[in-house]
C-alpha cells in the first residue's frame, strides 16, 4: 500500500469488515478531527476516552490514532456510545454522544436480524449486502447533529504513557511489568499466577 487510504477505508481495513457501528465511529472520528482542528495522533497528542467496546472504537483507533497500545485510548466499560476526544496541543476536548436510537431505521433493524441469525442463505447474504450499502449511504450522509449530541468540555488530561521496568514472576518465570506484579515473600508474582493461586 503506497497511498493514503481514506479514513473510512482505513477503518474498514483495521476492523476487517463494514458494519453500521464502525461507520458511526468513522463519523465521530472525522467530526472530532475537524472540530478540534487537528490531524491524526502520532505521539499521544490526542486522547480518546471511549465508553463502549463496540465496533465504533476501531474507527477511533484507525482514524484518530488513539490506540490501546499507545495508551491514549482509555476505555470506560459503561456500554454507552459516548466518546471524549481531547487534544493536548490546543487543550480542547469534546464529548460526543450518540442520540438514543438515532440510527434505528427499518433497514438497520432488518440488518440486525440478519446478523443475529448467523448462518444465512444466499438470498439473505445478498440482502445483508444490500442493507449494508443502504445503511452506509444513510449513515455517511445524515447530518452529524441528527446522529449525535456533542459539546466542548473541560478535560483533565491523563499523564502520558510511561515505560515501566519488567520483573520476573517467581512462579511462572515470565516477565511482568513491575507495577502489575504483587510482591510476595518469595518475590514478585504476576496477576495470572496470583489469580490461579487464589489471590495469595
Amino acid at each position: 500500500m503506497c497511498k493514503d487510504m481514506s479514513p473510512v477505508e482505513a477503518a474498514i481495513q483495521f476492523h476487517g469488515h463494514i458494519c453500521p457501528g464502525l461507520l458511526m465511529g468513522v463519523r465521530v472520528a472525522e467530526f472530532a478531527l475537524n472540530k478540534l482542528g487537528v490531524g491524526p495522533d502520532v505521539n499521544e497528542e490526542l486522547v480518546a476516552v471511549v465508553e463502549t467496546d463496540s465496533c465504533g472504537v476501531d474507527a477511533i483507533q484507525a482514524i484518530l490514532g488513539c490506540t490501546f497500545g499507545k495508551g491514549n485510548l482509555i476505555f470506560k466499560d459503561y456500554g454507552k456510545n459516548v466518546y471524549t476526544i481531547a487534544s493536548r496541543e490546543n487543550g480542547q476536548a469534546i464529548r460526543i454522544a450518540q442520540k438514543f436510537r438515532s440510527s434505528h431505521t427499518p433497514e438497520s433493524q432488518r440488518y440486525r436480524e440478519l446478523v443475529r441469525k448467523g448462518s444465512l442463505t444466499e438470498a439473505e447474504a445478498a440482502e445483508k449486502e444490500e442493507l449494508i450499502g443502504l445503511l452506509f449511504e444513510q449513515l455517511m450522509s445524515t447530518p452529524f447533529e441528527e446522529l449525535f449530541d456533542w459539546k466542548e468540555i473541560d478535560f483533565e488530561f491523563p499523564p502520558k504513557a510511561r515505560m515501566h521496568a519488567t520483573v520476573q514472576c517467581v512462579l511462572c518465570g515470565e516477565g511482568v511489568t513491575d507495577i502489575k506484579a504483587t510482591e510476595t515473600a518469595q518475590g514478585p508474582v504476576c496477576p495470572g499466577c496470583l489469580a490461579e493461586n487464589g489471590g495469595r
Partner: peptide
C-alpha cells in the same frame, strides 16, 4: 465478491 446473483 458480491453475493448477488445479478448486478446489485
Amino acid at each position: 465478491g458480491t453475493h448477488h446473483r445479478d448486478y446489485p
